[in-house]
Amino acid sequence: MSRAVFDSSEYQRRIDRTKEKMAERELDALFVSDPANMNYLTGYDGWSFYVHQGVIVTQDRDEPVWVGREMDANGARATTRLDEADIRPYSDDHVQSPVDLHPMDFVAGVLEDLGVSDGRIGLEMDAYYFTAKSYTRLRKNLPEAEFEDTTLLVNWVRIKKSEQELDYMRQAARISENAMQAGLDTIEEGVPEYEAAEAIYSALIDGTEEYGGDYPSIVPLMPSGDHTGTPHLTWTDRPFRDGDPVIIELSGCRHRYHSPLARTTFVGDPPEEIRETAEIVIEGMEAAMDAAEPGVTAETVEKAWRDTIAKYDVEKEDRIGYSMGLGYPPDWGEHTASLRPGDETVLEENMTFHTIPGLWFDDFGVELSETFRVTSSGAEPLADFPRKLFTT
């Protein structure tokens, strides 16, 4: 029995919208290998993305076709609403094959069976789990096909969320709040960094009294001390020391939907430089969120941040946010709109963004972030957590 977390009408809407985008590109078929996009179109949810798998959408079939490893076919039966004929498993001798078999050989056979072997086929050429060899094997097996790079086709369909998606993101936000508080409560002088990570992970899985949590697409990030100038470090067995700034970035996850949250704390009494930097980050982030509303561009939101921090003679070249929601490792971002100069994406209601305007210097950094939904009246933060520099 399927444990799909959306009803059939939700999946049908997604498939129909994807087919509209395919028609605009004159595609006969689309091969989707991004596990988030596979989930979005079918509900498939398994830790099987370390081997080749995918979903095929064609214009003349009502339902997609799942292709994956034979031992994962029951996972497709358990998590999707697909009929048995739409679940196409390949044998295990295609995995790290000693006899020069490759999963894309099987995928090519499915595409031929679906009558599109000489058609225009879209591929997610820059997806994490679609390799160069995958492409060369498809080309070898389907010499009459015309392949087109459609890496972000489904991602752009995903950018506006349904009410049920937003509900799951709000639930993820409740988990994020609990996990952030667990981390802040654990961090103090003499406590090893891994104990704070343990507390965060426990809270991410424990969830709330009403529901549990899932594994996030990105592990909790927790640089400390002079390493807070480098935002993407995790944790060590080093004990926290008096005078350490500590950044925590994490996300609760509910049915693969995320709501990231970041805060900075300080072990001891923070120096004035860090206090002032935190105030600048908070003021700039709030200015950016105040600017976010339907009809403005992504770069307009970033400009509100840039203009604010410029008053303090501070510059930041990195983007300050990105669209996100559904995700699998190694990323919860959608890879579409970014809050940065030059991005002219027009914000629409029910888009969701993680805005993370941290400031990182050579010897310290300060980071605060919010996940927000674009509403008819502006930005709605999904989490309810104090925006301040914490201390222990």
Rank of each mutant, 00 (worst) to 15 (best):
Ala76Tyr: 12
Thr375Gln: 09
Leu152Ser: 05
Arg174Ile: 00
Gly327Val: 07
Tyr129Phe: 15
Ala196Met: 13
Pro239Asn: 12
Pro341Trp: 03
Lys388Met: 07
Pro143Met: 11
Met289Arg: 05
Glu165Arg: 03
Ala288Pro: 06
Trp156Arg: 04
Phe385His: 08
Lys303Gly: 02
Val246Cys: 14
Pro329Ala: 12
Arg77Phe: 13
Gly358Asn: 04
Asp206Asn: 15
Glu299Ala: 02
Gly46Ser: 14
Gly54Arg: 04
Cys253Ser: 14
Ile56Asn: 14
Ser202Arg: 14
Ser48Trp: 08
Asn141Lys: 06
Glu279Asp: 15
Met289Phe: 05
Ile175Lys: 09
Leu123Gln: 01
Gly321Trp: 07
Thr297His: 09
Val296Gly: 08
Phe240Pro: 03
Ile175Trp: 11
Lys133Phe: 09
Glu286Gln: 14
Gly207Gln: 10
Phe49Arg: 00
Leu204Lys: 05
Leu152Met: 02
Thr375Val: 07
Ser162Ile: 05
Ile356Asn: 12
Leu347Cys: 05
Glu279Arg: 11
Tyr211Val: 01
Asp244Asn: 14
Gly109Trp: 12
Glu165Phe: 03
Glu193Gly: 11
Lys311Pro: 02
Glu112Pro: 01
Gly207Tyr: 07
Gln171His: 11
Arg120Phe: 09
His354Thr: 02
Ile320Ala: 14
Ile87Cys: 11
Asn350Glu: 06
Pro216Asn: 04
Arg77Pro: 05
Ala172Gln: 01
Leu123Lys: 01
Ile282Trp: 05
Asp86Ile: 00
Val99Ser: 13
Asp86Asn: 15
Met180Cys: 13
Gly325Leu: 03
Gly365Gln: 10
Val99Tyr: 15
Met104Leu: 07
Ser338Asn: 07
Val32Arg: 08
Glu163Ser: 07
Glu249Trp: 01
Tyr128Ile: 04
Asp16Phe: 08
Leu138Trp: 04
Gln53Gly: 07
Ala173Trp: 13
Thr265Gly: 14
Arg158Glu: 09
His354Asp: 09
Phe147Trp: 02
Ile248Trp: 11
Pro98Thr: 11
Arg3Pro: 00
Leu82Ser: 11
Leu359Pro: 06
Leu142Asp: 12
Gln53Cys: 08
Val5Asn: 12
Asn350Gln: 05
Ser259Glu: 15
Ala337Asn: 08
Tyr194His: 06
Pro330Ser: 14
Thr277Arg: 14
Ile320Gly: 11
Met351His: 05
Glu20Val: 04
Ser162Asn: 07
Asp206Val: 03
Ala36Tyr: 09
Asp72Thr: 02
Pro64Asp: 09
Ser33Trp: 01
Thr375Pro: 06
Leu111Glu: 04
His52Glu: 12
Ile87His: 11
His335Lys: 04
Arg174Pro: 02
Thr264Trp: 15
Asp34Tyr: 06
Arg373Tyr: 03
Leu41Phe: 10
Ser8Asn: 04
Arg61Ile: 00
Pro294Gln: 04
Tyr11Ile: 00
Ser369Cys: 04
Phe147Pro: 01
Ala203Trp: 05
Glu144Val: 00
Phe106Val: 00
Gly342Ala: 10
Pro330Ala: 13
Val67Pro: 12
Ser48Gln: 08
Trp360Ala: 02
His258Met: 03
